[in-house]
Design a protein around this nucleic acid. Structure first.
Length: 431
RNA sequence: GUGCCUGUAGCUCAAUUGGUUAGAGCGCCGCACUGUGGCUGCGGAGGUUGCGGGUUCAAUCCCCGUCAGGCACCCCA
């Protein structure tokens, strides 16, 4: 009896792997367009890499254990500490800003739900060494272009953006002490999901008038007005304007309830959601100017985002934007009689050497069955070889799509097939 | 970690208020079809009804436990 896989861990049979490969491909293509270079690190790290500074939120759900050398280790729950270590070790010699991305598999020990497993792949894009607002615009633009790369538009995905500095100063104007800011952030983070709980948190620490002020600040009805109050002279205002100029204005929703849970964000924060809001966040990120220094790496301003493959995959399936499973071969080579198999083997390998994807029957089968298999594989072409053909130095070439057949001389076959297949690859989607 | 809901063939679902040997469609395999494909017809394989226990003459159905999945919390990548 083969035991089941662990809860929250996935198998990837070919039809699922195709989606994953598609997602990775788009991630890499788009990242490359922004000049980002790919890096990676170990999936298993010393436990203290995460318990040291990263924030207690993550530590509670670490997938950790003691290895055979009595070391406390953890499967990586996030990439940032690893990134900080790598950058810290070599930042002095690197031209700034640093544009790096990675697609790590991350792990968390928590109860799974749709869009949230114990393991996922997460695109991490980070821009290190630039404090100015164009860096903020650049990283948000990158996240938006990722969506465009999958065929998603502003009607599918919304980018909700805020700025912790902006929010802090707004809270200060309400008379809230700086010491209270983290708690108020936490309450604001919950307003949308559970307004009653948020109000309870605030009521416990603030007077009624101030609480009302916080709710007014985050009220969707006042958002347009609040957005107009953000001066272009501020970092946040300049970043928003830059996104407008990049042509991404219609994706952006300024939303002061976005603060994000992680304690280390220092400025811009943003999240991407599907427009129908039926799924969890597709992407989240922000500016973390003090984190790298506090982790003991280089003291550089930085910002970045993480985008998981699970929610994104759900969204692509919902919208019919996932890749269909394409043909696995170009050509099927069929033998009419056992005496033809020798010839089939020889020809098949000539075609494989020419770069074509080729399959043939591994046992003796009627020609009809072999063609049936060719169709099931999605082959564009089939070559049928029988005793009569061999006697004439020919093979029968069938086009399985157009249902045509012609005799071809054996010697000219490889180049003939290559050109046919290359044509059809250009014109067939997902081929 | 907490609460609620759901587990029947590879997939989607049936099965009379508890009643004989748990069925169907799709898919898979075979045959009609020994030199020509997607159709059609016929046939076949595939189930400890998630698992364990209990109640009962009798359990897919009721009860308990457990595991898994979904939803909401918690938290957030």
């Amino acid at each position: 009896m083969i035991s089941k896989g662990l809860p929250g861990f996935r198998d990837f049979p070919p039809e699922d792997f195709a989606l994953r490969a598609h997602i990775f491909r788009v991630w890499r293509e788009v990242a490359a367009r922004y000049g980002f270079e790919e890096y990676d690190g170990p999936p298993l790290e010393p436990l203290d890499l995460y318990t040291a500074k990263s924030g207690d939120e993550i530590v509670g759900q670490l997938y950790n254990f003691v290895d055979k050398g009595d070391r406390q280790v953890a499967l990586r729950p996030e990439m940032t500490p690893t990134l900080a270590r790598m950058v810290g070790a070599r930042a002095n010699g690197m031209k700034k800003p640093i544009r790096w991305f990675s697609i790590p598999q991350l792990f968390r020990y928590e109860r799974q739900q749709r869009g949230r497993l114990r393991e996922h792949f997460q695109l991490n894009c980070d821009l290190i060494g630039e404090a100015g607002p164009l860096a903020d615009a650049e990283i948000i633009a990158l996240s938006i272009d990722m969506m465009r790369g999958f065929g998603l538009g502003p009607q599918d995905v919304r980018v909700r953006v805020s700025d912790r500095l902006f929010l802090s100063s707004a809270l200060r104007q309400l008379g809230i002490a700086d010491a209270m800011t983290p708690l108020v952030f936490q309450a604001i983070d919950r307003i949308e999901k559970n307004a009653a709980a948020a109000r309870e948190m605030l009521d416990a620490h603030l007077d009624t008038v101030t609480v009302a002020g916080v709710f007014r600040l985050t009220d969707p009805a006042h958002r347009a007005e609040l957005r107009r109050s953000i001066s272009a002279a501020t970092h946040f205002g300049a970043a928003l304007n830059a996104l407008d100029e990049m042509g991404f204005g219609e994706w952006i929703d300024f939303d002061p309830t976005i603060v994000r849970g992680l304690a280390y964000y220092t400025g811009t924060v943003f999240e991407l959601f599907d427009a129908k809001r039926t799924l969890r966040a597709i992407c989240g990120g922000g500016r973390y100017d003090t984190l790298l220094g506090s982790l003991g790496g280089a003291d550089l301003p930085a910002l970045g985002f993480g985008m998981g493959d699970v929610v994104l995959g759900e969204l692509l399936k919902d919208r019919g934007l996932h890749p269909s499973v394409g043909a696995s071969i170009d050509v099927f080579v069929a033998a009419v009689t056992p005496a033809d198999v020798e010839h089939v083997l020889k020809l098949s390998h000539e075609l494989r050497d020419a770069g074509l994807r080729v399959e043939f029957a591994l046992n003796t089968q009627a020609v009809g069955k072999q063609l049936n298999l060719a169709n099931a594989r999605g082959a564009r072409l089939a070559v049928v070889i029988g005793p009569d053909d061999r006697a004439r130095g020919e093979v029968q070439l069938k086009d399985l799509v157009y249902k045509t057949q012609e005799a071809i001389t054996d010697s000219s076959l490889a180049s003939h097939l290559s050109s046919l297949v290359n044509d059809s690859r250009l014109t067939t989607p997902n081929g």
